[in-house]
Design a protein around this nucleic acid. Structure first.
Lengths: 133, 133
DNA sequence: CTGCAAGTGCAGTAACATCTGCACTTCTGT
DNA sequence: ACAGAAGTGCAGATGTTACTGCACTTGCAG
């Protein structure tokens, strides 16, 4: 669904963080240097794709994100899971947990969430595959 | 690091799954229809980027993946985490677990892994200590 | 040896992302 | 009022992805 190029993503990040901005503001905060016109071409593309909207205030257009960060993340995550984990979110969790990158603290959080999450199982019909260790 | 376009990814998936293949084989298994020459242009690009290698067998070239699936996944995941979770893997885990998509079985697996991850620390050579928030 | 399907290189098109330059308009300070 | 800074649309250059078509080469069946 949401599919951002690196340049577009930089813009979206700023809009997600700061709300409504005009090109000049975005340009100032943009990672690295970018020409105003270059930046505006990103905005035009994002506008065409419907990921941002704009409204005129004074002489300038103020842009704001239409597509939300959470939703963009979710669709990116879904792609990752489909592409690399056979569509199984559990697979991804396994990889994450096994991938030596979790601190002790992370594991504590994880256990707490796993236990806490149990209450919320109403909507899950379980026929996902299980994994042997 | 590894950065695949949809077309490239389709090819890589097949190579990861089947090992060494020639264009004709890939073409047959490629999702949807694709012309042989179109497919070969993907292979050429992947070859230029160093993601695949090839060797001549008979009259055909056999291609195989150089970049590994695990490593591609990891770098994709890292990008996702950097772009959407402020670089915190834990953030991602929270989102995953909270995102309504886990079945009861998933949660069981998860608890087992979280617990196992702690007890089993000695055998999983994860003596890396990293910074925390 | 020869026909031919399978394989190959190469050239070129189309869409899109990235980025530049330029002329024009609009707000603001003095 | 008007100069200049800030903003705008538009046209186009460049590079990459995603393809298509075509002429040439190669291995094998007969």
């Amino acid at each position: 669904m949401a599919r951002f190029t690196p340049g577009e993503l930089n813009v979206m990040q700023l809009l997600w963080k700061h709300g409504e901005m005009k090109p000049g503001d975005i340009q100032d905060l943009y990672p690295g240097e970018i020409k105003n016109a270059a930046l505006r071409s990103y905005l035009t593309i994002l506008l065409d794709k419907g990921h941002v909207s704009r409204r005129k205030v004074g002489k300038a257009f103020f842009y704001k994100a239409v597509t939300r960060q959470k939703s963009a993340m979710r669709s990116t995550l879904k792609q990752l899971v489909d592409n690399y984990c056979g569509g199984s979110t559990t697979e991804l969790l396994m990889s994450l947990i096994r991938s030596e990158k979790l601190s002790e603290e992370d594991l504590v959080d994880l256990r707490r969430l796993a236990d806490g999450g149990e209450k919320d199982k109403t909507s899950s019909r379980s026929n996902k595959r299980r994994k042997k260790s």
